[in-house]
């Protein structure tokens, strides 16, 4: 039978998008964070371009607040696949531009990432940045195109999006503009995990159950690290946890779990009653339109 399984359909669509980037742009980049979605992107890029090299470098915007396990994984992966890795640090941008470090209990550099990203785009004159955002993550993302044109300030204007028809992607831009490309737009969290299981993709260890010292804060579990401020009365406990998403240590919460392998994680995700971002992202709780606002300002 000439039928494609749903994961094969999603894979083929993503590979097609990767190759459209290669065919349409002069200087693309793959934004790599060390999280499962960008790891999946790298795996798809291998399928799209091997035995050739990637027609783009991997770029990591390092907030300085990353999990060490994710950084170690990042460096190992780049060496293993022998592709170029560019790292730019938010800390450097803060110094160079005299930006104000965020304050507070969970002082997150998440919003400042945008400055470093835009600087990096300018430095290397990237015309397309490939990212691992998915439309099921969040309401504003549900409305974004696969080829999402940003102005020279990186801003997304939801009302001026280009219609995207059939499988035809219009990547033409004026000088200074760039395009954010999302090859796994149509994948859900569960699709990603099922694909990781099928393809036997290796992940950083923090995705699996491990013991960790955490702070219990408004129902969320935040890893104890140098980047958060403890106050008297804080409840610090050791729990068996895993990470459902991997962002900064300051704004990503862990979930209690005994799942030590992919099968265990998939079981938990099917049973869960809370969305990925709702459960683990402290930064999305700020307001109903948090993501919409950040995207309009150049965020991924």
């Amino acid at each position: 039978m000439y039928e494609l399984d749903y994961l094969d359909q999603l894979e083929s669509e993503a590979i097609h998008i990767f190759r459209e980037v290669a065919g349409q742009f002069e200087r693309p980049a793959l934004l790599f964070s060390g999280g499962k979605d960008s790891i999946t992107l790298v795996h798809l890029a291998l399928k799209a371009f091997r035995p050739g090299k990637f027609p783009f470098p991997l770029v990591h915007i390092d907030t300085g607040h990353n999990f060490p396990e994710a950084l170690e994984y990042r460096d190992r992966l780049a060496a293993q696949i022998d592709e170029k890795l560019i790292v730019r640090n938010v800390g450097d941008t803060i110094k160079a531009k005299g930006l104000t470090e965020p304050k507070g209990k969970f002082a997150s550099r998440n919003a400042l990432q945008t400055f470093t990203l835009l600087d990096t785009i300018e430095e290397f004159e990237f015309d397309a940045c490939i990212g691992g955002a998915r439309r099921d993550e969040e309401k504003a993302r549900a409305k974004e195109r696969i080829f999402s044109v940003r102005d020279e300030f990186g801003q997304w204007d939801p009302k001026r999006q280009r219609p995207e028809l059939w499988n035809t992607y219009n990547g033409r831009i004026s000088k200074g503009e760039n395009v954010r490309v999302f090859p796994i737009s149509n994948w859900t969290e569960l699709d990603i995990w099922n694909y990781i299981r099928r393809e036997k993709i290796e992940l950083p260890s923090i995705y699996f159950a491990h013991e960790r010292e955490v702070l219990e804060h408004e129902g969320q579990l935040v890893a104890i690290s140098d980047f958060i401020t403890l106050e008297p009365g804080d409840s610090v406990v050791t729990k068996t946890v895993r990470y459902r998403t991997v962002g900064d240590m300051t704004c990503t919460a862990a979930v209690e779990s005994d799942a030590s392998d992919i099968d265990g994680i998939i079981k938990e995700i099917i049973a869960t009653k809370t969305s990925e971002r709702g459960e683990t992202r402290i930064d999305d709780r700020v307001s109903e339109a948090a993501m919409e606002d950040r995207k309009k300002n150049g965020y991924f």
Partner: peptide, 29 residues
């Protein structure tokens, strides 16, 4: 299904939004 702030405020839908769900038989977009 109303994603953007402008839509929520005005109670309208201004653009195509994509939603996902799955049953054991199919993935739906």
């Amino acid at each position: 299904t109303d994603g953007l702030r402008a839509e929520r405020e005005q109670g309208i839908t201004i653009d195509v939004a994509y939603k996902y769900f799955a049953t054991p038989k199919r993935k739906f977009i």
